[in-house]
Amino acid sequence: MHFAEKIQSLRERVFEQISPLITEDFIYLDLPYHNNIGDTLIWEGTLQFFKQLPHRCTYKSSVATFKESRIQVDGGIILLHGGGNFGDLWPDHQRFRMDIIRKYPKHRIIILPQTFFYEDQDLMKQDAEVMAKHPDLHICARDNKSLAILQEHFGKNNILLVPDMAFCIPKQLLDKYRIAETDKTLILKRKDKELSEASIERLAPKGKHVEIRDWPSLEMSKAPSKRLYDILNNKYTSRSMVDWYAHHFFKNKLLNMGIAFVSQYKEIYTTRLHVAILAVLLHKHCFFLDNSYGKNSTFHDTWFNDLEGISFLK
């Protein structure tokens, strides 16, 4: 399957699986006010998906800016941001997610596409027990392995298999930020707790201009989120002002940075899932490597195994 056909099929699946659940206006929580451009791509893709719906997003916030007063007491629909932080590897987002599920049993809650990973199996059982008590909880798995975990341990909730929301980003927006391609090769080596023990540097092709990088937003001495949190920590600034700034400036800055960054390279090797996803959206050949717990390989096997232009290196 070629890039354009694959992108279209994944967008259609997102819409077919999620849109029937959104039957009225809704709110969108746990927005990623941090410097990982991958989460910003999910954020933008989710907003683009909303444009196809007949209902409105009436409130959106991060964990830090969330106001309980913005949630109707008697019910409604809550969407929780997707990504790769469901489980115990990134606990702040998981605690917020579980808190929302406990506090709002009268609401329909939709967890947008997530990769699921627990090191602590007892914690997974505890979370599953809490979620089983919610009468209208819908969980989107981002890959087949996550789907199997959910079906085995979270089977009392409605479980769906849905690709990453970043695939909903349209070509027009990508073209707005992309820059001219060079002859350079990117080796994208993540530097956080998800880095695999395998050495990606040894894959550097000989005789080519190779750059070993991470997302540029994570390499900057002054992170893009600093301005956002300066605003948040100002006692004269409302949380709604922080959300406004994040939506209109912070998000767009990271989008511009990420799309321009990936678009300049002719060839890409990556340990980050969203560099591979962005390469697909930009129709670029990509060599894809796993992260520490198999997130990338399971995503590849679920959605990319019939895609020309993506080579998974085991």
Rank of each mutant, 00 (worst) to 15 (best):
residue 101 I to P: 00
residue 105 P to A: 12
residue 114 Q to W: 04
residue 122 D to K: 15
residue 103 K to H: 07
residue 106 K to F: 06
residue 97 R to I: 01
residue 104 Y to P: 09
residue 111 I to F: 05
residue 99 D to K: 14
residue 88 D to E: 06
residue 104 Y to L: 07
residue 106 K to T: 12
residue 103 K to D: 08
residue 117 F to M: 01
residue 122 D to G: 06
residue 86 F to E: 04
residue 105 P to T: 07
residue 129 E to M: 11
residue 113 P to W: 02
residue 99 D to T: 15
residue 110 I to N: 02
residue 95 R to M: 12
residue 98 M to Y: 04
residue 119 E to R: 14
residue 100 I to M: 15
residue 98 M to T: 06
residue 93 H to L: 08
residue 129 E to S: 15
residue 105 P to M: 09
residue 129 E to Q: 15
residue 99 D to M: 11
residue 91 P to T: 07
residue 110 I to F: 07
residue 102 R to D: 13
residue 101 I to N: 07
residue 100 I to N: 05
residue 106 K to A: 13
residue 125 K to M: 12
residue 104 Y to Q: 14
residue 108 R to D: 06
residue 115 T to K: 09
residue 108 R to Q: 13
residue 118 Y to Q: 03
residue 117 F to L: 05
residue 95 R to N: 11
residue 100 I to L: 15
residue 96 F to K: 09
residue 100 I to K: 06
residue 112 L to N: 05
residue 115 T to Q: 05
residue 123 L to W: 07
residue 109 I to A: 08
residue 112 L to E: 05
residue 113 P to D: 03
residue 121 Q to Y: 11
residue 123 L to Y: 00
residue 127 D to L: 02
residue 87 G to L: 02
residue 113 P to M: 01
residue 97 R to Q: 01
residue 118 Y to T: 04
residue 89 L to I: 11
residue 93 H to V: 09
residue 119 E to W: 06
residue 116 F to R: 05
residue 96 F to I: 06
residue 111 I to G: 10
residue 121 Q to H: 13
residue 105 P to E: 10
residue 95 R to Q: 13
residue 97 R to G: 00
residue 94 Q to D: 10
residue 104 Y to W: 11
residue 91 P to V: 07
residue 129 E to F: 10
residue 101 I to W: 00
residue 88 D to K: 09
residue 108 R to P: 02
residue 117 F to K: 11
residue 107 H to I: 10
residue 101 I to G: 03
residue 113 P to H: 01
residue 110 I to V: 15
residue 109 I to E: 04
residue 91 P to R: 04
residue 97 R to Y: 02
residue 99 D to I: 01
residue 103 K to S: 12
residue 124 M to V: 04
residue 112 L to M: 11
residue 103 K to P: 09
residue 87 G to S: 02
residue 109 I to M: 03
residue 86 F to Q: 00
residue 124 M to I: 08
residue 101 I to E: 01
residue 88 D to N: 14
